[in-house]
């Protein structure tokens, strides 16, 4: 099934208007969150940027919303690394070093929102031919090869993972991405202090308590997200936006 491509979904006049694809509703078993007896969660239809938001797109946002400029953004909303290496050269490179709050403000400005973790994982479980390849050894290996690879200076110029069956690109192999509820895994202040509510995420506990032992790549992503605060910025952390499903013509 080819996903319907809606390249003029929003802001078609923007010089760097990204493509948006429509993802169909479905069911997906995330690595974490299912209760005993639950096999999958329903995922509603939604729109998703084909690629992560680029520096060129973010520069347009900064022009429209100068309160988010590097020098102006309040330290309550961004950490000291915010946009530290940002330049308007290389406009097609994904924007990184943006906090959750900044990413969310961008998506709101675009008329969208950040994808939920469930939506992001739903989209990212697909490869070029399969909607859910997350249990497939070859798929996991390709992703883990990237996680295990040292960063190189030109990494952000790489294309990332190829267009998947939904029409979404670069969910793997390029950057980590913010999700709307990225911190929703730890439900206690600190699992070392507050008991064992998330002992599966004690360092070294491994992926044994999760839904799929073989999906170590997803385990890495959940661990990565859990290490962030909403103010965090990292050289390899960016985002893409999601949109409410629209009835297509």
């Amino acid at each position: 099934m080819r996903a319907l491509r809606l390249s003029v979904w929003l802001l078609a006049s923007s010089a760097f208007a990204g493509e948006v694809v429509a993802l169909p509703e479905g069911r997906f078993a995330p690595l974490f969150g299912l209760d005993v007896g639950q096999t999958a969660f329903p995922v509603g239809a939604f729109g998703l940027d084909v690629r992560p938001v680029s520096r060129g797109e973010f520069a347009e946002f900064l022009a429209a919303a100068p309160q988010w400029a590097k020098a102006k953004a309040p330290r309550a909303l961004v950490d000291d690394g915010y946009l530290a290496s940002f330049s308007s050269k290389q406009p097609k490179v994904p924007v990184t070093q943006v906090s959750y709050f900044a990413a969310r403000a961008y998506c709101e400005w675009k008329g969208g929102r950040l994808p939920t973790t469930l939506e992001w994982e739903y989209a990212a479980a697909a490869d070029e031919t399969r909607k859910d390849a997350s249990r497939e050894a070859d798929f996991a290996k390709r992703i883990l090869d990237w996680y295990g690879k040292p960063n190189r200076a030109d990494d952000l110029e790489q294309p990332g993972s190829p267009r998947n069956v939904y029409g979404v690109e670069a969910l793997h192999g390029l950057i980590w991405e913010w999700t709307d509820d990225f911190n929703a895994l730890f439900v206690s202040g600190d699992n070392r202090q507050d008991g064992d509510s998330n002992s599966k995420f004690m360092c070294g506990a491994g992926a044994t308590g999760s839904a799929r032992r073989e999906d170590y790549a997803a385990f890495m992503r959940y661990g990565m997200r859990s290490s962030l605060t909403p103010r965090s910025t990292l050289p390899r952390l960016g985002f893409r936006c999601a949109y409410a499903a629209r009835r297509t013509p």
């Binding site: 969150g33 209760d35 639950q38 969660f41 309550a76 709050f101 911190n183 929703a184 206690s188 605060t229």
Partner: peptide, 22 residues
């Protein structure tokens, strides 16, 4: 909740919300 770093998540099927207690 993000401004406070208070964590919560809703189970989309059961409606049960897991959350911090702060």
């Amino acid at each position: 909740t993000m401004l406070l770093e208070f964590k919560y998540t809703r189970n989309p099927e059961s409606g049960v919300i897991l959350h911090d207690n702060t």
